[in-house]
Design a protein around this nucleic acid. Structure first.
Length: 260
DNA sequence: ATGGTTGGTAGCCAA
């Protein structure tokens, strides 16, 4: 089965592109980030017409995440990342997908950008990563096939940027950010794209500004992390770079894994 | 080069 993630940067602006991508690649599960709308405003019918069941956690204007699944969603485990009642951002939704003779748990996330550094936005990013770490440690005890996927807003290593030096003052590439991401992976998760594509030049985001796409000034910040039970079934991973050339593209492109 | 571009929303914020 194919499980994919895509920061679509506005479901209203990206509806035709998102539908075209779903028709073309037919993922069994698709996770969206930055839907930028409320649950009520999400164009559910258009996705249901393609055979998807939906779990949406949105808010007005920005953020917002959604899980689409061809198989039934057994349970929407949580809407919103646990650990801070005061956090009103819609950045995490987790659901259990029912399979023939099993389940797979999917955590769809939009990790805070954190810029500019030295502000409460960066503090919020690091606190959010700590809460995500706590959630993952809890989930690993279930010993299920589990995927944590989405826009992590983390450049893990210099190889994940075309021009690493240009990101040295950015929240996505701070030592604290990278350390928190390493700690998360090191609890026992597999970075699926890294495992399947260790080579340089693998990116998932190109800024709209300054001709970043034309110059291939990309970064790899959208990730799929697998629990051991999911990693055992990993058959391949990839990036649907072709969507970045479409009319009205998202600045991110889809990332996917194939599980046996 | 502290630039430039897009989306959502309503005179800017987030990225």
């Amino acid at each position: 089965m194919r499980i994919a993630t895509w920061n679509i940067n506005g479901v209203k602006a990206r509806l035709e592109g998102a539908l075209a991508w779903l028709r073309e690649t037919s993922p069994d599960v698709a996770c969206f980030q930055e839907i930028k709308c409320t649950d009520e405003a999400f164009p559910a019918e258009a996705f249901e017409a393609l055979g998807y069941n939906l779990a949406v956690h949105g808010q007005k204007g920005f953020n917002g995440v959604a899980i689409l699944s061809k198989r039934p969603l057994d349970e929407v485990a949580v809407r919103g990342l646990p650990g801070d009642e005061a956090d009103t951002h819609s950045r995490y939704i987790e659901a259990v997908v029912s399979l023939n003779g099993g389940v797979v748990r999917v955590g769809c996330l939009y990790l805070p950008n954190g810029n500019p550094i030295g502000t409460d936005k960066f503090t919020y990013k690091l606190a959010w990563m700590r809460r995500l770490h706590d959630r993952v440690q809890c989930l690993l005890q279930l010993e299920e096939p589990m995927l944590l996927l989405g826009d992590f807003n983390v450049i893990p290593d210099p190889v994940d940027a075309r021009n690493p030096q240009s990101w040295t003052n950015d929240a996505l590439f701070q030592p604290e950010t990278r350390a928190a991401y390493r700690a998360l992976v090191n609890v026992g998760l597999t970075d699926a794209v890294r495992a399947c594509h260790p080579e340089a030049g693998v990116y998932t985001f190109w800024d709209y500004q300054a001709g970043a796409w034309q110059k291939d000034h990309g970064i790899r910040i959208d990730h799929i992390l697998l629990s051991p039970q999911a990693a055992d079934r990993l058959q391949g991973a990839g990036i649907d770079k072709f969507t970045r050339s479409w009319e009205k593209p998202s600045d991110h492109v889809p990332v996917w894994v194939e599980l046996g």
